[in-house]
Design a protein around this nucleic acid. Structure first.
Length: 504
RNA sequence: GGGCCUAUAGCUCAGUCGGUAGAGCAACGGACUUUUAAUCCGUGGGUCGACGGUUCGAGCCCGUCUGGGCCCA
């Protein structure tokens, strides 16, 4: 037969052996009048409920308790007249199913052996018993297929490669305990964060993700376009300017937990989209907001670990309890480089220091930026226990008020844990005239080619001109909080991190 | 942006000196009524990431590209 005469059939024929065989089994079931994807199957209890109910059933006992249980088959042992299978449900709970010739008959036993594969989801109906080896089991009177898997599960005994885990998280969740645990850790942390906020009378709001203007942080945005309005829109890089509008409007304690988007590099601690908490507290300042931040982190640790001491996935313990260390940014630099550095140290002197340290210097860096870079170079790696780094340069902090004593310094801290920046907090700048000057400075930098510089948001300035009360504000990366609590890389804390598409 | 490692069966991985592609699990056929990484006998399964080069001959050597990981800035 020539190629032209057999067009469509080849798609199925080209499949790898194991995929082809399962498709054939599906077709075989349909042919025999068995629905491989029924609208419902019998289910009277979850596996977890049965496990809890019979936590201490003696070996080789019967209960007379007839149930219908469902689960994915992750392990199957077929013998001549008695078959075993391990069912697993979504949270990882497992239960053994047994099918014996004398209970189900030859036809059902044969179909179980030939139709049912690893990965299939089934419903088994029968009595809850324990086997002669003491395994809690359901001894089937009948079974029904709930959903036929057309793909084989990966080898259950060898871990999947990192790429496969991320690309097929659904399979990762089926086979790997830690993946299931991580997926449930995140919502537990989220719940704890919201509870802490609610305890302190903070109001949760949702502010725009699609913005006419991006602002509130130094970062490159993703750009989009609205057909209806015929204008450019940006995915937000931070919600700050909208949350401050809330404070102006009298929502005195406000927070938002939502996604930000930054069009920058991705590595083990940066993702192009990431979850962020921002919170503002009227009549607070950088110290009160630091206390709030510590409470949020410590309560989250309690929620998932039952203690302020958390255990990382590699077994390392991290103590997040107590009152955290505070260091001054410029003191840390001074100590790290062995000569006195303050916010008034000129750019040229900082350049000499950086050169001596062997750092690459970007000529676009302003004085404060260079000081921050030197700090990261000399001190960052040592900041393992939670540490507030206090007093950042004012020229890189356009939304922060000046330090009440130190010239050239802003009332801004960064919180470091495990050597990375977990959160940042300010005494917010509330003088609208100074705020305008700072944003105009930023716009000038932007005009000079700084792609991370902020724009002048006139509506935000108008809001500020209606007067915002003295306010403390903070921002914390949720993914990074999970990293600090678990020691995982950012791509493990995010269920579906961005991956480049596979090529054929 | 720079450096290093990596891509082979559904999954996890070997593959020596350049000479017809291997294992475990999984799959297929058979045996087995207490297994739990079941066991025993047998069988099939591959565009070795893509493209180009060197060579009588390339999974292996060289170049380019793509995906992934790690380190540095």
């Amino acid at each position: 037969m020539s190629k032209e005469e057999q067009p469509a059939a080849s798609v199925e024929d080209d499949l790898p052996e194991q995929l082809r065989i399962r498709r054939e089994k599906r077709a075989g079931l349909i042919e025999r009048g068995v629905e491989p994807y029924p609208v419902s199957v019998a289910r009277t209890a979850s596996l977890a409920e049965i496990r809890a109910k019979y936590a201490s059933l003696e070996t080789d006992s019967t209960t007379g308790d007839i149930q219908s249980l469902t689960g994915r088959i992750i392990f199957k042992r077929d013998t001549g007249k008695l078959c075993f299978a391990t069912l697993r449900e979504g949270d990882g709970t497992e239960l053994q199913a047994m099918l014996s010739l004398d209970k189900v008959g030859q036809e059902t036993l044969d179909s179980w052996k030939s139709d049912i594969d690893l990965g299939d989801i089934v419903s088994v109906s029968g009595e809850i018993i324990t086997s002669k080896r003491g395994e809690l089991s359901i001894l089937a009177n009948s079974y029904a297929i709930a959903a036929k898997s057309l793909r084989p599960l990966p080898n259950d005994h060898k871990p999947m490669s990192e790429e496969t885990r991320v690309r097929m998280r659904y399979v990762d969740l089926i086979v790997r305990d830690e993946a299931r645990a991580n997926a449930r850790l995140r919502p537990a942390v989220m719940r704890s964060l919201r509870e802490t906020f609610h305890q302190q009378n903070f109001v949760e709001v949702e502010t725009p993700m699609l913005q006419v203007m991006h602002g509130g942080a130094a970062a490159r945005p993703f750009k989009s376009f609205s057909n209806a309005y015929d204008m450019d829109l940006y995915l937000r890089i931070a919600p700050e300017l909208f949350l401050k509008r809330c404070v102006v409007g009298g929502i005195e304690r406000v927070f938002e937990i939502n996604r930000n988007f930054r069009n920058e590099g991705a590595d083990s601690s940066h993702s192009p989209e990431f979850a962020m908490i921002e919170s503002y507290q009227a009549y607070g300042d950088w110290r009160s907001i630091a206390d709030l931040t510590r409470t949020l982190v410590q309560n989250a640790a309690l929620a998932i670990a039952g203690s302020h001491v958390v255990t990382h996935h590699d077994g390392r313990k991290a103590d997040l309890g107590g009152k955290w260390r505070e260091i001054s940014l410029y003191d840390a630099i001074t100590e790290g480089v062995g000569e006195s550095v303050t916010a008034l140290t000129p750019l040229e002197d900082l350049k000499k220091i950086a050169t001596k340290l062997g750092m690459k210097i970007d000529p676009k860096w302003i004085t404060g930026k260079l000081a921050e870079e030197i700090f990261e170079h000399v001190a960052k790696d040592q900041l393992i226990a939670p540490t507030f780094v206090m007093g950042f340069p004012i020229d890189t902090s356009p939304l922060v008020r000046a330090h009440r004593e130190l010239p050239g310094v802003a009332e801004k801290w960064d919180l470091y844990v495990d050597g990375f920046e977990l959160a940042t907090g300010y005494s917010e700048l509330i003088d609208p005239v100074i705020q305008r000057d700072r944003l105009v400075e930023q716009a000038t930098l932007g005009a000079k080619g700084d792609l991370e510089a902020m724009q002048v948001d006139e509506d935000f300035l108008r809001a500020m001109e209606f007067a915002m009360p003295p306010t403390g504000g903070m921002g914390m990366g949720v993914d990074r909080l999970l990293m600090a609590l678990t020691g995982l890389g950012i791509r493990e804390t995010i269920l579906f991190p961005l991956v480049k598409p596979e090529v054929d």
